[in-house]
Design a protein around this nucleic acid. Structure first.
Lengths: 222, 222
DNA sequence: ATTACTAAAAGACGAGTAA
DNA sequence: TTTACTCGTCTTTTAGTAA
């Protein structure tokens, strides 16, 4: 849980454009925006940096501050809450893209028993050992951002055989009526135009899909 | 400015459904959700009530809490901030509705010099003394809620001739390319399916509009 | 102008308690 | 069980200061 004050500060930095790149921000300017003293603003910035929500580069005449990926995630979680408050309507998002070949990574991960169990228990089907990779079109990349992290289930990482396996997040979806789910690693950066879909069967076979076929992925968000 | 903790508490209550009606909420349950002690949760609730963000009715076995209009506005302001962060104004909203006859109130207000000046200075055109009233269709009522209060400009109220004139808020828009603006009173409750549009000319004449004509209002949010 | 420390003042926290 | 008070403790704030 992120502290309320930290979130407030982070949001203000984001409003100043901190998500798009480093911005000049003095303790005083932040203090003015938040109606707090520059001393407190300074401390808030230090706290945010300690939690890795922002990175700072100090200059003699001030500092440049940028919101990190971590910080943006925290803000998106908050945003998702507000979306849930004000848009209780079952919004159905549709992502469109073309089937592409993956690097076989998905197959590897889905063959690990621990992941298989975890995904199975939270999705209600035993995942086929392999993923369908889809390259989203430009509009769908935007839509996907709106998915935020509402409805995503977190699968924690684990250690086995002297190797650490990172966490992942998953959200249920449907392709041509088939129940499946979008999976992505939690921590590492992932290209925003690619999604990986798992299902209880081999979608390529069942739906007769080939590379470059256009398909729609429906997220009912329920 | 709403305190960060108060906003956090208010948001949690809203997530529990507090915007849709009174919900049962003990200090303990709120405390659990916020990871604070029941004592502090109790104090938070008292603070929210004092600021009129919630109303409470005490029962022997707990209390029923509902978010007030005031509280919902505070949350919508916050929501609007997040929208601004993550949807950098590419979004163009379109409201659809039919032209209706107003009660002549708009004409009255737009004839008052003070309003005329205020609107003129923040919109960039001298408003024609009269408003075009539009009844929104069901979908547009929802879209309109999404406008929240981002991009609205506040026109403060004033007193003249022993009469107080309330504040208003205004957001620029376009109808068939013509620059205009949606106006509504700030404080008083206003029907959610009606909007009043002002422009630099008489839209009814210029666009040859009659009652029950369907028109589109575009908000570019810029 | 900055940042960020120290130290005193202010305020928030939660245990205990009464109703 | 509740709510909400008091009270001791601890945290946070801001003024003052140094760099």
């Amino acid at each position: 849980m992120v502290e309320a004050e930290d979130l407030q500060s982070l949001k203000t930095i984001a409003l100043f454009g901190g998500c798009r790149g480093p911005i000049w921000l003095s303790s005083q300017s932040l203090g003015n925006a938040l109606e707090i003293s520059p001393q407190t603003a300074s401390r808030r910035l230090i706290a945010l940096e300690r939690q890795q929500f922002v990175i700072r580069s100090m200059k003699p005449d001030g500092q440049y501050v940028a919101v990190t990926r971590e910080g943006e995630l925290a803000l998106r979680r908050e945003y998702a809450d507000y979306v849930r408050i004000f848009n209780p309507e079952q919004k159905q998002y549709t992502l469109t893209g073309v089937v592409i070949s993956g690097l076989g990574e998905g197959r590897y991960y889905m063959s690990i028993p621990h992941y298989k169990e975890q995904f199975g228990s939270c999705l209600g089907f035993e995942p086929f050992p392999g993923t369908l990779n889809i390259r989203l079109d430009a509009a769908s990349i935007q839509v996907r951002k709106h998915l935020d992290h509402a409805g995503w289930t977190e699968i924690p990482g684990f250690t086995a055989d002297d190797r650490t396996f990172g966490g992942a997040q998953v959200i249920p979806c449907r392709i041509r009526g088939y129940r499946c789910a979008i999976v992505e690693p939690s921590r590492t950066h992932y290209p925003e135009d690619i999604i990986e879909v798992i299902a209880g069967c081999e979608l390529r076979n069942v739906l007769n899909l080939n590379d470059n076929d256009t398909i729609e992925v429906e997220i009912t968000h329920d």
